[in-house]
């Protein structure tokens, strides 16, 4: 071994991190080479000083507070980023409720389609009424047949629109799918609560009426929160630009669905 090569392994030799053969070779070399002996001694001394260097500890409070602070910041940064959209989402949520009161009980009591399977329902917001009208007008049997194709096509459009990579897709679609379950659950709960409300009004039961109103309020609140959570999760997955595209895309979901449906209906006769 040459001196230059041996020197490269000084630290590993010092820390006994080398295999026995290399250790033996370096040991032999150092024993017989005066220059390396001197260099190794100097090296050891320098390492010793470096390792024993004392540094200032921060206050324990800093390490206690930082995780919380960063977690808060993660929340704040999202809110700051999308604050301009916030009012629109609330407006959207209000519109959802109007739509739901009229149409969703019927729409989601339908047993001929596995809603939870579909990414489509993730995008319901202000246009629920619009969508429910649309699905009421279409041929149910045709819709059942076309549902998987619609979903597939929808994913393709979304991937293209948001310029999703494979990794983005693998992160985003499960989140959307999860949300579709939440959506389904919400619709059933809301429908049930509305039905109970109708009964309470018809039978003039003030106590039950109050209970129903409270239930509806809670359901709506949870729904708003879960939509907000979805946006946060999506925001964490997508870049700012993709997220902006996501927001824009969600505005024209019904239109896209209509187009997809018409296209598929025509192509499959």
């Amino acid at each position: 071994m040459q001196c230059n090569t041996v020197a490269l392994y000084f630290y590993d030799y010092l820390k006994s991190r080398l295999g026995w053969f290399k250790t033996w070779k370096i040991k032999k070399h150092i024993e017989h080479c005066i220059n390396c002996q001197s260099d190794f001694e100097a090296f050891k001394h320098t390492i010793h000083i470096l390792e024993s260097e004392r540094v200032q500890e921060p206050s324990p409070h800093f390490f206690t507070a930082l995780p919380q602070q960063i977690m808060e910041q993660s929340k704040a940064s999202f809110y700051a980023y999308s604050s301009s959209k916030k009012t629109r989402w609330w407006a959207a949520a209000a519109a959802v409720l109007v739509g739901i009161t009229s149409g969703l009980v019927l729409l989601f009591s339908s047993q001929h389609y596995e809603w939870g399977q579909s990414v489509l329902w993730t995008f319901f917001n202000r246009d629920v009424w619009d969508l429910s009208s649309f699905f009421h007008k279409v041929d149910e049997n045709k819709l059942i047949t076309l549902a998987p194709a619609i979903e597939e096509k929808f994913k393709v459009i979304l991937t293209k629109e948001l310029r999703l990579t494979d990794q983005d897709e693998s992160r985003l679609f499960p989140v959307l799918k999860d949300f579709s379950y939440t959506m389904k659950e919400y619709c059933y709960s809301y429908g049930t609560a509305l039905a109970a409300l109708t009964v309470a009004i018809e039978k003039e039961q003030p106590k039950e009426l109050e209970q129903c109103l409270q239930d509806l309020h809670q359901i709506r609140e949870k729904w708003s929160n879960s939509r907000w959570e979805l946006l946060q999760r999506v925001r964490m997955i997508l870049s700012k630009e993709q997220f902006a595209r996501f927001l824009l895309f969600s505005e024209r979901v019904p239109e896209e669905l209509r187009n997809i449906y018409s296209e598929l209906k025509q192509s499959k006769g």
Binding site: L66, P67, M71, V175
Partner: peptide
């Protein structure tokens, strides 16, 4: 964290801050 769990970021901060 990417799936929306903020607590996991806190754990990462605790793990690496020192």
């Amino acid at each position: 964290f990417l799936e929306g769990n903020r607590e996991s970021l806190g754990v990462l901060v605790e793990r690496y801050q020192r």
